[in-house]
Simulated scan of single mutants.
Amino acid sequence: MVENLQQLECLEISECKGIHEIISKEKIIKEAFRTRYLICFPRLNSLKLKGLQNLIGFCHEDYTVEFPTLKILEIENCPQLKGFIHNSTSKEILTDVVLFNNKVAFPNFEKITISNLRNTKRIWYNQLHTNSFSILKKLTVKKCDVLLNIFPLFLLRVFQRLEKLVLIDCVSLEEVFQLQVQGLDIEETYVLNSQLREMNLVRLPKLKHVWTKYRKGNISFENLQ
């Protein structure tokens, strides 16, 4: 089935309560893939998943997924999501959910919107697929109640081209840019010049700081207006 979607350019799935995965692991196993562990959507440029109350992930992490032309991703009101590429069963309860890991490639992402993801504690895994998110320009995060920070120290270089950041109603968020990791001595010196121009922070009751002074690096937000 997936091999028949090579020409797909836009995919939107909304308000389907019975969907647990977009690509079912059980069905994939029965299909003959040219490369069994790689799924590619070569022409897809827009993906929107909205109001999928029982969605746990796009597919299982047994497979690596590539979206070489995807520019827009919207994931909204999917409260049971356990990761875009998940590693759990539908009945398993997770305590530390990471939205994006290194099993999915997004080299041309420009815009991401996520909202109402009840279980997501981190957006990014410590290691991402090569070149993923490197040209991301706009990130919007709304009503993700257990997020503690947005950008971890180890991935700051990845998001240098980000131009607009919108954070709304994330009640547990404590910091936006994590420039220090408690109990960890970072030897590497960071020299970054962020392209961030606009940042909207709305109703973040536990926010302690946007960023902290980083003694081992030179991280500039001089384009911020």
Rank of each mutant, 00 (worst) to 15 (best):
M1W: 03
M1E: 12
N4K: 08
Q6I: 12
E9A: 10
C10L: 15
E12K: 13
E12Y: 02
K17Q: 10
H20F: 08
H20G: 04
I23V: 15
E26Q: 07
E31Q: 13
E31W: 08
E31P: 00
R36Y: 12
I39D: 11
P42R: 07
P42V: 08
L44P: 06
L52A: 04
L55F: 07
I56Q: 02
F58C: 05
D62S: 13
Y63H: 13
Y63D: 02
T64A: 12
P68S: 06
L70E: 02
C78V: 05
Q80E: 15
Q80T: 08
Q80G: 00
K82F: 02
K82G: 04
G83I: 04
F84I: 12
N87V: 01
N87T: 09
S88K: 10
T89A: 10
K91H: 13
K91N: 15
I93N: 05
L94S: 14
L94T: 11
T95P: 00
V98Y: 09
V98A: 04
N102T: 00
K103D: 07
V104Y: 00
P107K: 10
N108Y: 00
E110N: 11
I112C: 06
T113K: 05
L117C: 03
L117W: 05
T120Q: 07
T120N: 06
Y125K: 15
N126V: 02
L128S: 10
S132M: 03
S132P: 08
F133G: 10
I135R: 11
K137F: 00
K137Q: 13
T140W: 00
V146W: 00
L147G: 03
L148F: 03
N149T: 06
L153S: 13
L153A: 06
L153T: 07
F154Q: 14
L155E: 05
L156P: 10
R157S: 14
V158G: 05
R161A: 01
E163W: 00
E163F: 01
L165P: 05
F177R: 05
F177E: 06
L179V: 13
L179F: 05
Q180M: 13
Q182T: 09
T189H: 09
T189D: 08
Y190P: 03
Y190H: 07
V191H: 11
N193F: 03
R197P: 01
E198W: 04
N200V: 09
R203V: 06
P205A: 03
K206H: 05
L207S: 06
K208Q: 13
V210W: 03
N218L: 10
I219W: 04
E222K: 13
E222Y: 14
E222R: 14
N223P: 01
L224G: 08
Q225V: 09
